[in-house]
Design a protein around this nucleic acid. Sequence first.
DNA 1: ATGGTAGCGCTGCTA
Length: 264
Amino acid sequence: MRIATWNVNSLKARMAKLEQWLGDVCPDVVCLQETKLADAAFPTLAFSALGYESAHHGNGRWNGVAILSKVGLEDPQPGFAGEELADIEECRLLTATCGGVRVASVYVPNGRSVGSQFWIAKLEWLDRLRRDLAESCSPDQEVAVCGDFNVAPEDKDVYDIAKFVGATHVSAEERHALEELRAFGLSDAFREVYPDTGQLFSWWDYRSGDFHKGRGMRIDLVLVTEPLRRRVSYALIDREARKGMGSDRPPSDHAPVFVDFADG
DNA sequence: ATGGTAGCGCTGCTA
């Protein structure tokens, strides 16, 4: 089973690219972030025509998460368990069961700057995700938490840690919150395949030509429980998909990431 | 270089 995650930075702007990519890479399950769509505008039929069931959780201009699946999609849960849909202001979490795996598509708040109210809210959101996971499933189950975490787990996940002094995405508090989430029993599937390799990034700032200068961060993660960790057979950050499609519109600022799991 | 680009949508916010 191939599980992918991609922050598309507007599904409307990226749909043609995504359709091409789905055909090229054939993932079984895809977690999308930053669809920037309301549920009514989500292209369910287009994905259906490509063989994917889908679920979406979005309310328009910002955020928005989705899951596509070729292996079934059951019990979709928008937001945190028990959270009233009407109370959700920012659509950042969607969970569903796909081919026996409990899959979560997550879009962790950016945090903007260390110490800001938005950064504190980011830490609280990560803690809530940790609690939600602990209450709704077990580390013995097959669980994959995939998405844009807006945290680079280690120094080797940024192009030059010296450039990030005092910056968000690398602070001790953010990394601690991610570690606490992982303490549930989650492994960074990408690191099962590339345990030590640096300079492998999933996001580059649009500005200053950072992609072409190799100035990026690895913040898009596939976190899996032990029954899945044992079966990781391959992983890739698809940099090719971060490139444009020739003369038309720009690419997303994120590259898709996928992980392959051997049959259990 | 306290800049820069992209998306949404029409003003400036978010990233």
